Amino acid sequence: MNYKTDTAATSAANVLRFPALSLAGQAGTSFKHEHLAAILADGKPRGFFEVHAENYMGDGGHPHRALEAIRRDNPVSLHGVCMSIGGPQSLDRAHLARFKRLVDRYEPALVSEHLAWSTHETTFFNDLLPLPYTQATLDRVCDHIEQVQEAIGRPMLLENPSTYVTFLESTMSETDFIRTIARRTGCGLLLDVNNVFVSATNHGYAALDYLADFPLASVGEIHLAGHAEQSDDEGDLLLIDSHDGPVADAVWKLYEIVIARSGPIPTLIEWDSNIPDWPVLKAEAAAAQSILDQRAINGGERRDVA
């Protein structure tokens, strides 16, 4: 691993406030505060919950009380959305410090961020913007990932993007870019299957070809989500990674192919707007769990696939 830790600081941070819970082979859902009562009424539902780190960067209040209630009985995955890993400027040290405090406080089973940028000088964009895949961008992304991993004292997962434009100056494919990042930094990968489908449809390539070249052996978590259909200025189909509905049938089929190749990888259902009642979200996670369980029965442990 290409990250360093301070032994004394790490030992102090690892005094458990919450149980050490595995999410191996489990499906989970995004945690929404409006679902808290229903989740607690379920007793101890199987699976894990993922939260956006930026929603918990205050020191206290209801958000932390709700997350503490969930974390007592369930593993948690911490997903950052504003680190601007691919941004042209240095990482925001204050933001990184807040991120580290959350990792220390909740001891998440997984920690992840996006292959994207969202900050320019003092401007913050409410979006995850794409990158040109060049050597200069690669060096910058690797440097930023190493800074994050050194700060939190553990490897992070990097999520593949959904994209709506490509760059003429790119000198490598997205899969080669991601593979090289994982090799250089020791980070893991978060494979968002919906993002693969959205980008492949928008840019006119085969999602299966992308997945065949993706370094599945480095994947520590999978995301599934819904997308929206629009038309671009020429009237062609444009998919938007909207997270506002159920997982599409085509994405489920791609997911089954991935799991057949890789084995049961922890899988999250993302649903961030037009949020349904808890039983609907729980049912989506149960569908993913069924696929994971069937793969575990048929194939046992996950295989490493290069």
Results as ranks from 00 to 15, higher is better:
residue 165 V to D: 10
residue 109 A to L: 05
residue 120 H to T: 02
residue 179 R to Q: 08
residue 119 T to F: 02
residue 132 P to T: 13
residue 85 I to C: 05
residue 103 V to G: 11
residue 75 P to A: 10
residue 86 G to E: 12
residue 94 A to L: 13
residue 98 R to N: 15
residue 126 N to C: 01
residue 115 L to W: 13
residue 86 G to I: 08
residue 62 H to P: 01
residue 98 R to K: 15
residue 119 T to S: 14
residue 70 I to D: 04
residue 116 A to C: 15
residue 126 N to V: 03
residue 124 F to D: 08
residue 75 P to L: 09
residue 87 G to A: 12
residue 111 V to C: 02
residue 69 A to N: 06
residue 116 A to K: 04
residue 144 H to A: 07
residue 85 I to P: 00
residue 161 P to S: 12
residue 110 L to E: 09
residue 124 F to M: 11
residue 91 L to N: 05
residue 181 I to V: 13
residue 92 D to Q: 10
residue 140 R to A: 07
residue 180 T to P: 02
residue 161 P to D: 12
residue 147 Q to T: 12
residue 80 G to L: 13
residue 159 E to C: 06
residue 167 F to V: 08
residue 70 I to G: 03
residue 183 R to G: 01
residue 128 L to C: 01
residue 160 N to W: 12
residue 179 R to E: 05
residue 155 P to M: 03
residue 136 A to Y: 05
residue 74 N to E: 01
residue 169 E to N: 14
residue 85 I to T: 15
residue 111 V to K: 00
residue 82 C to N: 12
residue 186 G to D: 12
residue 102 L to K: 01
residue 80 G to E: 08
residue 136 A to W: 06
residue 65 R to P: 00
residue 102 L to H: 02
residue 69 A to W: 10
residue 181 I to S: 00
residue 107 E to L: 13
residue 92 D to P: 00
residue 89 Q to M: 12
residue 82 C to R: 07
residue 102 L to N: 01
